[in-house]
Design a protein around this nucleic acid. Structure first.
Length: 215
DNA sequence: ACCCAGGTGGCCC
DNA sequence: GGGCCACATGGG
């Protein structure tokens, strides 16, 4: 089985709608940090609290009371880290881009990526999520799920994030829609994995248990 | 009562 | 460059 066949099999099984719902690129940035090591259910609760509190704007987030923000972040875990990283990210945009997110995101893709990576709490995956879903750039998000899935299916195996990203980007057309769709299919598939439901339908697609930490 | 989650950063060798 | 750990709440 190769990548194309996997994608085609997953496409037949799942009919995915919008994968990363958001009202603005800034909201994608916030969501990208919140979703680290957590499910989207928790993230939407946090985002909703922030929306009500008016914090989904650069200046408000940058100048907010940290304790208040922490309470909003709490459901997603690592709340102290995430709250301070979110506020400092907003502070960076405020100071360096006149509070204008598009000014940050409109540069050359790899330059933007480097700038994102320089911010605390933004690593490879978070930076690429922001680029792909917030900035509409063709950067594949080589998440742990994708790594596991491609490994278990024998399609590609590497411990290195950039290796995996390079592989997928070399196999697919450099197209935002294709990258978003492929990422969404892999993650969605993994979330209904054997880990939670032994011998789930998902296993049948990959031909074996695709995602559980242990087989 | 376990095990894991749409990671990141710091420290060690 | 790799291996291990803290960070913390919520769902299966």
């Amino acid at each position: 089985m190769d990548l194309e066949e996997l994608i085609s099999a997953l496409s037949e099984e799942y009919d995915l709608g919008v994968w990363w719902p958001s009202e603005s690129p800034f909201e994608v940035m916030v969501g990208a940090i919140l979703t680290q090591q957590t499910n989207w259910n928790s993230v939407s609760r946090s985002l909703e609290m922030m929306r009500r509190g008016g914090l989904l704007e650069v200046d408000k987030m940058a100048e907010c009371d940290l304790a208040v923000l922490e309470e909003m972040v709490r459901p997603t875990g690592f709340y102290r880290q995430k709250a301070s990283r979110l506020r400092s990210m907003a502070g960076h945009i405020q100071r360096n881009h006149g509070s204008d997110v598009s000014s940050l995101l409109q540069g050359e893709t790899m330059k933007v990526r480097e700038e994102l990576l320089s911010l605390p709490g933004i690593g490879n995956e978070t930076a690429d999520s922001i680029l792909l879903f917030g900035a509409g750039r063709p950067k594949f998000v080589a998440a742990a799920y994708v790594s596991r899935l491609l490994d278990r299916t024998g399609i590609f195996s590497s411990k290195d994030y950039m290796d995996l990203q390079g592989f997928v980007e070399s196999e697919l057309p450099p197209d935002v829609t294709a990258y978003r769709r492929t990422y969404a299919l892999c993650v969605h598939h993994c979330q209904r994995s054997c880990l939670r439901r032994p011998r789930c339908n998902a296993c049948a697609i990959a031909g074996r248990c695709a995602t559980g930490l242990r087989r």
